[in-house]
Design a protein around this nucleic acid. Structure first.
Lengths: 143, 143
DNA sequence: ATAGATGCAAAGTTTTTGCCGCTGT
DNA sequence: ACAGCGGCAAAAACTTTGCATCTAT
């Protein structure tokens, strides 16, 4: 049968995604994981991300044209993309009321919905930043 | 000074986007535009899409992990992606009330929002389709 | 011991650039 | 006439795949 082993790189990559403040881009995962595994290669990240996705542990979301991955099973949520630092956060409050089965004007039967908010994250708002800039700390992934 | 000319390829690309039923992917734009300009190259499409975006005539939206472009200035709207035929439609009713400036729980200052609904479009719902299938007519762009 | 996993490098894709002849103004 | 354009091809960026080595089990 198919084995699927437990390896150091898989554990680290999974942990990085679990501890993230929101969905991470491939480059973010690589960078953060390399803090623990200096020799980690991109190929492994791609392969692991694919594997974890197939196993249903994580799933991809695309924001601003960039593929990102986030831990699955965290309930209904949406995202906030900061226009200043580029970080993406996970929001746990939902601004729409469209349960599956709702019939939208025009005859569209809604089964799911996705919302992304754009603006200034708390940190950037506080700093009074008005334009895009590189994030300071262990932040997201401005591209 | 910067001139910016009116050319056949730009006109065609702009028209293709104007006549589209929803946002189009780069490949769609190329294919549809080539109906009028057989020799059109991809590079021109990319350059033109970028130019039109900078000029504010069109703007990019990412749906299902794929970058698409749509005409700007058509008012506030969102998208509906059909799970059966893959077509993407433009919706003119908005399910959320988040005017720019709204402060979202957690201190996030909202400047804009994007909503995508997923489900069955009127046609597919009527046809009783339950799984993905190729669209029949001149529809959108299932990939 | 052995199938599976990883790193490195080569191969694919997709998007961007460089060049030079072409074209709108 | 001449700066901006478009096509073609090279380049860069991003993913995937092949292979020999290494490692959970």
């Amino acid at each position: 049968m198919t084995a699927t082993r437990s390896t150091r790189q898989r554990d680290v990559i999974a942990r990085v995604l679990t501890e993230a403040e929101g969905p991470l881009a491939v480059a973010d995962v690589l960078t953060r994981a390399q803090a623990d595994l200096p020799g980690l290669g991109v190929a492994t990240v791609y392969r692991t991300l694919k594997l974890l996705t197939e196993q249903g542990h994580i799933h991809p979301v695309t924001l601003d044209g960039e593929a990102r991955y986030e831990r699955a099973g965290r309930g209904h949520h949406h995202h906030f993309s900061c226009n200043s630092c580029g970080r993406v956060y996970t929001l746990h409050t939902c601004p729409v009321a469209l349960p599956s089965g709702t019939v939208y004007p025009g005859g569209f039967i809604v089964e799911a919905h996705e919302v992304t908010l754009y603006g200034k994250c708390p940190q950037c708002a506080r700093a009074g930043l008005s334009g895009p800039a590189a994030p300071a700390g262990a932040g997201g992934s401005p591209h």
